[in-house]
Measured scan of single mutants.
Amino acid sequence: MDPFVVLVLCLSCLLLLSIWRQSSGRGKLPPGPTPLPVIGNILQIDIKDVSKSLTNLSKIYGPVFTLYFGLERMVVLHGYEVVKEALIDLGEEFSGRGHFPLAERANRGFGIVFSNGKRWKEIRRFSLMTLRNFGMGKRSIEDRVQEEARCLVEELRKTKASPCDPTFILGCAPCNVICSIIFQKRFDYKDQQFLNLMEKLNENIRIVSTPWIQICNNFPTIIDYFPGTHNKLLKNLAFMESDILEKVKEHQESMDINNPRDFIDCFLIKMEKEKQNQQSEFTIENLVITAADLLGAGTETTSTTLRYALLLLLKHPEVTAKVQEEIERVIGRNRSPCMQDRGHMPYTDAVVHEVQRYIDLIPTSLPHAVTCDVKFRNYLIPKGTTILTSLTSVLHDNKEFPNPEMFDPRHFLDEGGNFKKSNYFMPFSAGKRICVGEGLARMELFLFLTFILQNFNLKSLIDPKDLDTTPVVNGFASVPPFYQLCFIPV
């Protein structure tokens, strides 16, 4: 058959498939802009700032609406009420993970971030239990974070109060905490193996944040037939998995079943207990991918939040002064901060919360999916439909947070200066898919920041009023603009 005829037939089939998918069930789905064949609503979305586009569309179609990214149908949730109703009140029905062709290629359905069903539930339950087990290797997770915080302070001392970009050092600290939990080992910041790991993690975040990856996920045929950065992403992930597998083999040879040292040991012990169960989800494949998931999810998000926190503290020296006064009063100079201190430091706690609220790190979270046909607000959402959640619409709700575009710790303080919780605080998402490392991340943010401010004054290279804190939105995360500062020993 003539190649031209084959091409026309293929394009015609794709067009018909697109029209059929977009028209099927439209009477039951939430409203939304009319999609174009094949490309859907992509032309109506700013790929570099999806969150802003969703906010604009919500003003037209309401808090629940339908979009098509290519052939992929998505239902968008915008605003606290619908997000709570879906992710919390109907948590089980909305607990699936959205379709990610690239991740599915890399992870093969294993791990904790992109798995679904029984596998996801069992691996998540085990990971939560293990991360909360403060007795691994007779050292609590808090001990590990405190140790890394001391190392971080010593690295900052080496800058000798000269101007520096904190990106690298602030990236090393949370990565080392995860390494300590998974591998029972922290690395020197100049260790070549550690630097290679950091390089792969950072490069992957840069790649994932590009519009090209959005295109690959919406048109998965590209993955096999086109060159691009997605190939580098898959190569980096394969490198990390190979490295983790080597460490798993080392653990198998040296493990003491009665004295687990780290996450890998705990997983291997669980595998041993379930070795007679042919349906067990505790396999080497799941261990390797879960460890890679924890490394990827637990490094860049925390380091970016820390980097943004220091920029905001530079911009608002009056806030920094209040935090340091609270540190001096509650902790002093002669001991290290600990998590028990947080309950006695409402202002510092409010500042950490406000940093996370203000920066809105992951504006749309990772997409969910419905696990069955769901009736939601008089609409029928078919099983498997991807759910896109606007966390921006919750964290920047102007009824809950007056002047949401302003950095103001009073958003989390009552009139008496006591810490005030808010149900709208969802930087880790909400419901059954809430970030498994939430507790660890909150511990790291509090301890790293208090250790830094206990030991250093922060000095800006320019007038604080002239510092730009506008986030650089890159399609996946909101990151701070480049800046330098000086760490002046107190």
Rank of each mutant, 00 (worst) to 15 (best):
F4Y: 14
L9R: 06
C10G: 12
L14F: 08
W20Q: 07
W20R: 11
R26Q: 12
D46A: 07
I47G: 10
K52R: 12
K59Q: 09
G70V: 03
L71W: 15
E72K: 13
K84G: 06
L87C: 04
L87M: 10
L87A: 03
D89R: 05
F100G: 08
N107C: 07
S115Q: 05
S115N: 06
T130C: 13
R132N: 15
R132C: 10
R144Y: 08
Q146L: 13
A149T: 03
V153D: 00
E155A: 12
T167Q: 12
V177Q: 02
V177W: 00
I178P: 01
I182M: 12
D188K: 11
Q192Y: 09
Q192G: 11
M198G: 04
K200E: 07
E203P: 05
I205H: 15
T210M: 11
P211R: 11
F219K: 05
I222F: 15
I223Q: 06
H251V: 01
D256P: 06
N258E: 12
N259W: 06
Q276E: 14
Q279T: 13
S280E: 07
T283C: 11
V288E: 00
A291G: 08
A297Q: 14
E300T: 13
T302V: 13
T302R: 00
S303V: 06
E318Q: 14
Q324V: 14
E328R: 15
R329I: 11
V330W: 07
R342Q: 14
G343P: 13
G343C: 14
Y347W: 07
H353T: 06
V355T: 06
T364A: 12
H368G: 04
H368I: 03
C372S: 11
P382R: 06
G384N: 08
L388H: 01
L388E: 00
E400T: 07
E405M: 15
D408E: 08
P409K: 00
F412Y: 04
L413F: 07
G417A: 07
S422L: 03
Y424P: 02
M426T: 05
K432A: 14
K432L: 09
K432M: 15
V436Q: 02
T450K: 05
I452P: 03
L461D: 15
K465R: 11
Y483I: 06
L485V: 14
